[in-house]
């Protein structure tokens, strides 16, 4: 499997590489230079171009995209209904971009389209990293907080719990992130259960490629 990654930072990309290998149970052939977006609105802006580029100019068969949900509506089971589309849910938006961008593509490089793999970290990737370590951190806890109008933690707090500073250097950020990811690499079940936004990524990645 030839995989390309689109993420928001080098630290996110490092984590994603480990998680993709763990999901597949073997090292994936990941394109060396990851595609990068500058935060959420930019993810959705560059995604069509990345999909088009990968489809026509490369033999990559899978594009893995992750982003933070920040304070956007969280993707829930209700969003999975046929024809349902939540205009502010980032999972719904990313999937729609994949669908719309590639629906008229002719097959290229021996595949019908680049496979879509989408994950949304609620509210940020640091929550995935804390999963299994801080029992109060989960997607359900965040949704409950959104509904109650009292969020259980902030993104800044999650970052501080991982990096022990508000301003980690990039190497420190990557080192801490990989240290926490090691727990998931050994056993993904807790992350899959507590974070449906990650479970969706797993499901996409395990689905058969569209040849």
């Amino acid at each position: 499997m030839k995989v390309a990654l689109l993420s928001e930072s080098p630290a996110d990309e490092a984590v994603l590489r480990v998680l993709v290998d763990a999901i597949l149970g073997e090292p994936a052939q990941v394109a060396p230079a990851g595609y990068r977006a500058r935060g959420w609105p930019n993810v959705i802006q560059v995604l069509p171009a990345v999909i088009r580029h990968l489809h026509f100019n490369t033999d990559v068969d899978t594009l893995v995209v992750t982003c933070d949900s920040d304070d956007s509506p969280v993707h829930t089971e209700a969003h999975e209904a046929p024809q349902y589309y939540h205009p502010h849910c980032r999972m719904c938006q990313l999937r729609a971009v994949f669908r719309q961008t590639s629906k008229r593509f002719p097959s290229a490089h021996g595949r019908l389209k680049v496979r879509r793999v989408v994950g949304v970290a609620v509210p940020a990737l640091e929550a995935w990293l804390l999963c299994g370590r801080d029992s109060d951190v989960s997607e359900a806890a965040w949704i409950n907080g959104q509904q109650a109008g009292r969020l259980p933690y902030t993104r800044a707090e999650l970052k501080f719990r991982i990096y022990q500073t508000e301003r980690p250097s990039l190497p420190h950020e990557i080192q801490c992130a990989l240290r926490e990811t090691e727990r998931h690499r050994r056993d993904l079940r807790r992350l899959e259960y507590d974070f449906p936004g990650f479970a969706a990524l797993m499901k996409d990645l395990k689905s058969p490629p569209q040849l």
């Binding site: 930072s9 080098p10 500073t165 508000e166 301003r167 980690p168 250097s169 990039l170």
Partner: peptide, 15 residues
């Protein structure tokens, strides 16, 4: 990001 960190090193040494 690295440039920012290089400068943050000056202002936030404990980090």
């Amino acid at each position: 990001r690295e440039v920012r960190d290089v400068l943050y090193r000056l202002s936030y040494p404990t980090s």
